[in-house]
Each structure stands twice: as C-alpha cells, then as structure tokens.
Design a protein around this nucleic acid. Structure first.
Length: 333
DNA sequence: AAGTTCGACAACCGCAGTCCA
DNA sequence: GTGGACTGCGGTTGTCGAACT
C-alpha cells in the first residue's frame, strides 16, 4: 500500500505549465518514453514532481488526445454510461477515444450535471427528482390561491385548479410510469435501470458498428449486447429509449406531418375532446406486433430522431410544452 | 473604465490498489 | 508476509477570461 510521497518538496514548481515546460516534457517522452514518472522530471530537466508531469502528459500533451467540444454522440454516450457506471470517469473515458477522464469529469460537472438538474433529474440516479413533483400540488395550490385572491372568481379558479391537477396527474404518470396510475408504456418489472442498460447497450453496439472511433468492446461482449438487445426487444415496446429518459413532449399534434407513428403496443388517442390537436399514446391490445426489424435501434450517428418513453419522436433538449408553458415550472426549477 | 461575478477547465490533493524487493 | 515505491482514480481547488454591473 503505502502512501505516495508528498510532491510538495520545497522548490518544486506548481500551477500552470509554461510552453517551455511542455516542450521539455514532450521532447523527453518522445525520445525516452516516460519510464518512471518519479525519475522523469530530473532527467527531463523539469522542476516539477513526477505526478504533475504524469498528469500534464495524460491529460493534455498526449498526442492522441482529442480536444474541442464534445459531439452530441459523445454527450449521449457519456450520459448513458454515467447512468450505469456513475462517476467512474476512467471507465467512461475508455469508451471515448481521445477523451481523458479529467475532461469528461469537467464536462459532466460544468454542463451535463447542470442540464440534468435544470430538467428536474437527479444527476446521480438519472431519475426524476420526485420531491419536486410531490411538492407540485402544494405549490400549484398556493399559486392559484394567490391568483384567486388577486383576480378571479371562485368558480373560475375551481376549474383552473381542476385542470392543473389533471395536468399534474398526467405528468406524474408519464414520468413515473411504474406507479401504474396513468398511461404506462412499460411492462411491470421493467424499470429505469433496465432501460438505461438497454439504452447503453444499444448505443455501445451502434458505435461499435458505425464509427471508426467506436467503442472497443470484445467480440464476446458485442455478441452478448446484441443478444441482450434481441431478448429485450421481445419483451419491451422500444429498444431505443431517450436520452436521460427525458419525457420530451407529452403531447404531439395529430395533424403534424412529421409525427412519428406510435410504436408497437400503443395507439394514438385524442384527449379532452375530438377536436383537440393533441393525442397521447396508450397501450393497445389490438394492434398487431411490428416486425423485429422495427424494434432494433437505428444507428446512433444516423438518426436525429430520438424517442421518449412513449416512443414519440422528440428533441431531448426540449422540456414538455406543458411544463415550459407553466410559469410555475420556472419558479420551481 | 473599473470592479465583481461566473463559468470553464487545468491542475492539485490524497486515498487506494498494484508491484516488487 | 511486509512495507515502500509507484500509479490510477475521483474529488476539489485554483486560475483565467468573459460577461455583467
């Protein structure tokens, strides 16, 4: 075991590296390899500790490092892997060629984590932050009461409150489908973890097949992933789940040309009134199953379309219109 | 224009695991 | 088997430039 000797020996430089130091380090490693990091600084003529040299090399100077913005595909992979692996940055980095664990960690902390929180998801569990939704009825009631006192009649407000509660129930049903209260798209026992795993397997497999920089899975794992996908496809409505399980749009216009057909086991039905431009997807016992090929996920890089838990096409960067329209949502989030 | 705040990211710290004498 | 040296890893801090007041 043994604790590593402290790097703080007096005289050793700390802080940002200068171009000259970088050049020395690169030159030395190109010529001799890094060998022992502890011995390297002296040999390379650097007034740094070996640990600092190692970090500088692995996180910044290594020739195979890919710099610049993360692509949407990389972001997708990070999110999926993080939902399974948690903060195992090195493990995640091993699936993203050219990216370092430090870079991914920073990207997560500065971008993705905030994004998830803003969307109301717990960045650690990737599940909806239920405390927000459990407090929603109270907040809505409070807000409505305030508005009621200010502006409207009791009758008018009673109707509004009822509408809000219906909206909320619908929302909860979609986000937490396992409670079985509202339209649910998943068979019992098919939880978020399974979805995450499935999602990741799907993206891993796709990356492996389609990208020269794809993931380096062993053939065996690839076969297992494919087998898992296939078996899950037999029991699961959709094999390609959305990023983060973001509930995307809860309703889509019926007359929209771009509307994606409801996936297998679901029918589009109108809600509220026959003239409503909106529909929701509900389990359907009458539809015939789709061919297996439909259930297989399209290649990640080739498909701009993503699906929410109901299988709707959606833009994962967008929150449900229902929520976004609600000023209360902005107050809470 | 100067001061302050914020965000992004590079770098550091310290624990834990592995290797080897 | 033991303990020191070394490396890997994840969390945290520091720095710097941009945006804001």
């Amino acid at each position: 075991m043994g604790r590593s000797p402290c790097c703080d020996e007096s005289g050793l430089k700390k802080g940002p590296w200068t171009p000259e130091e970088d050049q020395k380090l690169v030159k030395y490693i190109q010529k001799h390899g890094h060998g022992s990091w502890r011995a390297l600084p002296k040999l390379a003529g650097l007034n740094r500790c070996g640990k600092s040299c190692r970090l500088r090399w692995t996180n910044y100077l290594r020739p195979d490092i890919k710099r610049g913005k993360f692509s949407p595909e990389e972001e997708d992979t990070i999110l999926n892997l993080h939902s399974i692996l948690g903060n195992k940055w090195s493990a995640i980095a091993s699936h993203l060629p050219g990216r370092t664990d430090n870079e991914i960690k920073n990207f997560w902390n500065t971008h993705l984590k905030k994004k998830l929180i803003q969307m109301g998801f717990d960045p650690m569990t990737h599940r909806p932050r239920t405390e927000i939704f459990s407090s929603l009825p109270h907040l809505i009631a409070w807000a409505n009461l305030k508005e009621l006192i200010d502006n409207h009649s009791w009758e008018e407000q009673a109707m509004r409150l009822q509408a809000e509660m219906t909206k909320l129930q619908y929302l909860q049903g979609l986000i937490q489908p396992s409670d079985g209260s509202f339209p649910t798209s998943q068979p019992s026992g098919f939880d978020m973890d399974t979805i995450n795993l499935l999602n990741s397997l799907s993206s891993i497999k796709d990356n492996n097949n389609n990208s020269p920089n794809g993931l380096n899975l062993s053939p065996q794992l690839d076969i297992e992933a494919a087998a898992s996908l296939q078996s899950l496809n037999n029991s699961v409505p959709f094999s390609r789940m959305p990023n983060l399980q973001v509930p995307c749009s809860f309703q889509t216009p019926l007359n929209n040309k771009d509307t994606i057909p409801a996936p297998d086991q679901f029918s589009a039905v109108t809600i509220n009134s026959p003239n409503s431009p909106w529909h929701q997807l509900v389990p359907s016992s009458t539809r015939t199953p789709s061919p297996p090929s439909i259930a297989l996920p399209p290649p990640l890089s080739d498909t701009p379309i993503k699906y929410n838990t109901l299988g709707e096409a959606c833009d994962t960067s967008v929150w449900p219109d229902l929520l976004l329209e609600d000023p209360l949502f902005h107050e809470i989030v």
